[in-house]
């Protein structure tokens, strides 16, 4: 059957896609092309002189120890956020899948963090972890841990990872729960009769059957850690202490808006854009085919 709509008018189809195109152009294509263009230029902080430098901004970045450090920090941060976030969400989803009574309350509570704005998530955790007034440092002090994420870079990283994970747990949880509930009960029962205990059943039956969901969430979480954690980092640590929590997106902002090195900042944006495009391609290429049973 012919499913395509055939328009008689020439301009109507264009008119129909125009709003979407306008939005995409204004908020993606235009800034993206600006970034691409800017990344090839060298501009002084006051915008008085502009010079075309080709790929020099990129070359400079990869020689810059600060940028490479930020890359490493981003990798560590993403691995921690995705790893801890996925494991923790999966654990919660498995528990929720077992709960019969009060399941709705449990689920609703778990979905709340997703509705909280990133900056607020950051502020929330700052209050909890504030060295001066926070409740957690007070407790930690009792077990002999001195908490000050303004000074200790590991603790700063811990703080932003916790805040970022907390924010994303709901999303992961929902997908894992849906994934778990789509596994037929009889498979689990068959495994139980075959002699597998709960742990064994989880690792040999449930986990493999969840792999499409896990893979999907892995990509989503990496993208999240790379790009969507700006608000959390900005409100919690501002990339510090030192550069210890300056992930790539944050560095774009710092170098561009604070350092006013627009060329370098634009080049960094372009690199990030390439990464997200790469991840999206991986997502589309593999999600449908590779990760299947």
């Amino acid at each position: 059957m012919e499913k395509r709509v055939v328009f008689r008018s020439r301009w109507l189809p264009y008119a129909l896609v125009a709003p979407q195109l306008a939005i995409t152009t204004a908020f993606f294509f235009w800034p993206a092309s600006q970034a691409l263009f800017q990344s090839l230029l060298l501009q002084d902080p006051f915008g008085t002189s502009v010079q075309f430098v080709g790929l020099e901004n990129f070359a400079h970045l990869f020689r810059d120890e600060g940028y490479l450090a930020s890359f490493r920090i981003t990798v560590v941060f993403s691995v921690l956020v995705a790893g801890i976030g996925l494991s923790f969400s999966l654990l919660l989803a498995v528990m929720a899948d077992h709960i019969v009574r009060g399941a709705l309350v449990f689920r609703t509570l778990l979905i709340w963090p997703y509705a909280v704005a990133p900056a607020i998530a950051g502020v929330l955790w700052i209050f909890l972890f504030s060295p001066a007034i926070g409740i957690l440092p007070y407790w930690l002090a009792k077990i002999g841990i001195h908490w000050n994420h303004l000074l200790d870079s590991r603790q700063a990283m811990t703080l932003v990872v916790i805040a970022a994970v907390w924010k994303q747990v709901s999303y992961n949880f929902l997908f894992f729960l849906a994934g778990l509930q789509s596994i037929p009960r009889s498979l689990i029962e068959a495994a139980a009769i075959d002699g597998a205990g709960p742990m064994r059943r989880f690792w040999t039956i449930v986990f493999p059957l969840l792999s499409p969901t896990t893979f999907f969430l892995l990509v989503v979480n990496i993208v999240y850690a790379f790009f969507d954690t700006f608000g959390i980092i900005d409100s919690a640590t501002q990339g510090g202490p030192g550069q210890s929590t300056t992930v790539l997106v944050y560095k774009v902002f710092q170098d561009g808006f604070k350092g006013l090195d627009l060329g370098s900042s634009a080049a960094q944006s372009v690199i990030l854009m390439a990464i997200v495009i790469g991840l999206t391609v991986v997502q589309f290429r593999y999600i449908e085919r590779k990760v299947q049973y």
Binding site: P184, S186, L187, E189, A190, A191, I205, L209, Y293
Partner: peptide, 8 residues
């Protein structure tokens, strides 16, 4: 089982 419950 009726639906066989083979591990897919």
């Amino acid at each position: 089982f009726q639906n066989y419950a083979l591990y897919p």
